[in-house]
Design a protein around this nucleic acid. Structure first.
Length: 566
RNA sequence: GUCCCAGUAGCUCAGCUGGAUAGAGCAACGGCCUUCUAAGCCGUGUGUCAGGAGUUCGAAUCUCUUCUGGGACGCCA
């Protein structure tokens, strides 16, 4: 239990009791001993006619029990205590599936849970307090965040929300690459733009940053301080531009991310590793572990020992470190801060980096599984039916801020989170801004707004949500198919969260939220909530309130607002 | 050449630790507003799950292989 506020959801409890009942039935029927029972599935079938739950235990047991699956199923069904597990009807179907049809009266209990839990409804103890560090975005502080970073930010933040809700102890972390060449290039780029702003003919460095932001920095400096920095020594000037650039870029990153709804717990500076001497230390540590050797004037990590394609250079023959070395030190630093698990979210162009980092972690004695890398595939932007071209050289690219301004926060976060990370993402800007039924964001938000509207109207008419234990509220009146479907769906919310956390798959929440909205819209059109029938009205208001809370919680997990009016 | 990701309905994608007749949204067509928001609902059609072979009682899912698209293969970061 985390903090004592988590308890098993009614739907989870019932599912547990079915699993327990099946196991007991297996033993009682003499098919196998408890410890012989193989792994089996108890799932909600795709097909409604296959019941509320179905299990494949009879097939799985065929080998152990040495009988035909259907024969096994018969034995289990006979020995199964249906009443104890809220099962109304039990059938054998197909090759030996056991289909369970529930006595659904228990489902209304979920309403009391949702109302009592409120914003924390859905919280589970799946993660059991495991300390987990999620590092994402980590874009170089040399320019604006663009599409790939935006996807990383949306997916990373949603994943953290899900993990937190599933009972993990989550830290959001951003790694600032403030020590390498790119920062020198940043300083030189600002210098050039500053000089240009003063009307001087000054060339941009070869690998300079051509973003509009850098141009503005130069203009600001020129306007504020005139030729003050021209007069400095070259070294002094470089140091100034370096610090100035870093400060400005970091401030901009933080602001953009904050406006995007993402707040990091830790901003970790690469430079701080050098200052602490952690980089030479990690080389020594790797050497002590026996995976370091010298060749061609360079120092190498024997990463092939752990499945990498080739060994990797740690210290170049000019004595400087490769990018990898401080990064290893950084990951070791994360472990030293007590995390049981590290998650990194990277763009597809970095996937080749995974084997060497995992190898490095294993060299240091960690399990490969303790580091998990999520690769976000590429994002393509479409506008007017055409793919929007980006140019790195001229710095012409759509930024996270452009998206927020043109598309809005909610649609942007929803669109970036709705696909699995494995899938290339086509971001259709016209669709995202369209206020029509083509746009899935509005569909879900509209459901929420509708519920709020009903609750407002009820309040206006003086109908209040009575305490759930009040005997005047007869929830058994909620018995139509659409009402039961809604109850089932909100009852599955905690399990959905655990699954999304287990699979590191926040896009599951987007699907869930859409499905729940769909069930609600359907219910809304089929039945009126506020009617002359007072008892039914009150019962349905409770249902609406529970669905509204659940949908709101789901939207919050993906960083999308749940509007009360639209 | 090696490695990674993808290839599922007209389009965009779920499903992938093997399970029943492969799903959703959009697009198309036909209905539904005196009613708590029609940004909604109801109904209709769609598939060689890229091709081939194998493992299995059972494969979109696992293995091998071919093809197509994208990405990565630095003593760059």
């Amino acid at each position: 239990m985390v903090g004592g506020y988590w308890k098993m959801n009614i739907v989870e409890k019932v599912k547990e009791s079915i699993i327990e009942g099946i196991k007991q039935a297996v033993v009682k029927a003499g098919l196998a001993e408890v410890e012989q029972i193989p792994v089996f599935v108890l799932e909600v079938p795709k097909e409604k006619s296959h019941g509320d739950y179905a299990t494949n235990i009879a097939m799985q047991l065929a080998r152990v029990a040495k009988k035909a699956p259907r024969q096994i199923a018969e034995g289990i069904v006979e020995a199964f205590d249906a009443k104890k597990a809220h099962v109304a009807k039990i059938e054998i179907a197909g090759p030996g599936f056991i289909n369970l049809f529930m006595d659904q009266a228990y489902l209304t209990d979920v309403i009391a849970e949702v109302l009592a839990s409120g914003e924390s409804y859905g919280r589970t103890n799946f993660g059991n307090g495991t300390k987990i560090n999620v590092e994402f975005v980590s874009a170089n502080p040399t320019g604006s965040l663009h599409l790939g970073h935006a996807r990383g930010a949306a997916v990373g933040d949603a994943l953290c929300n899900v993990l937190d809700m599933a009972g993990f102890d989550v830290t959001r972390e951003y790694y600032i690459n403030d020590a390498g060449n790119q920062i020198a290039n940043l300083a030189k780029s600002i210098e050039a733009r500053y000089m240009q702003a003063l009307g001087k003919d000054f060339p941009m460095p070869e690998d300079g940053y051509h973003g509009q932001d850098i141009v503005e920095f130069g203009q600001e400096l020129a306007a504020e301080s005139g030729d003050k920095y021209v007069l400095m020594s070259e070294e002094e000037r470089f140091q100034f531009f370096r610090e100035y650039g870093l400060k400005k870029e970091l401030a901009k990153l933080k602001q953009d991310l904050q406006d995007f709804g993402v707040e990091f717990d830790v901003w970790f500076s690469e430079t701080s590793l050098y200052e602490a001497g952690a980089v030479p230390e990690i080389v020594e540590k790797l050497r002590e572990c026996g995976y370091v050797y010298e060749q061609d004037g360079a120092t190498w990590l024997r990463s092939t020992e752990f499945g990498d394609d080739k060994d990797r250079v740690l210290i170049k023959n000019d004595g400087s470190y490769t990018y990898l070395t401080p990064d290893i030190a950084y990951h070791e630093n994360k472990f030293s801060r007590g995390y049981d698990r590290l998650i990194n979210i990277w763009g597809a162009d970095h996937h080749g980096y995974i084997p060497r980092m995992k190898a490095a972690m294993q060299s240091l004695g960690h399990d490969a599984e303790q580091l998990h890398v999520i690769i976000n595939q590429m994002v393509s932007l479409f506008q007017g039916g055409e793919k929007v071209k980006m140019s790195k050289r001229t710095g012409k690219a759509v930024t996270i801020r452009d998206l927020m301004e043109e598309v809005g926060l909610d649609a942007t976060r929803y669109f970036f989170t709705m696909r699995s990370s494995d899938a290339h993402l086509d971001f259709d800007m016209d669709l995202a801004v369209s206020q029509s039924n083509e746009n899935p964001v509005f569909y879900v938000q509209y459901a929420h707004a509708r519920m709020c509207s009903i609750l407002r109207k009820a309040e206006d008419e003086g109908i209040s949500l009575k305490d759930i234990v009040d005997e005047q509220v007869d929830l058994s009146l909620l018995s139509s198919e659409k009402e039961l479907d809604l109850l089932k769906k909100i009852g599955q919310f905690p399990e959905e969260i655990s699954l999304a956390a287990e699979q590191y798959a926040p896009h599951r929440m987007v699907r869930y939220v859409h499905e729940l909205a769909s069930l609600f819209h359907s219910f809304y059109n089929a039945a009126h909530v506020i009617t002359e029938d007072k008892a039914l009205t009150v019962a349905r208001l409770h249902l609406v309130k529970a669905v509204q809370i659940t949908l709101g919680n789901g939207l919050r997990l993906i960083g999308v607002n749940a509007p009360e009016k639209m």
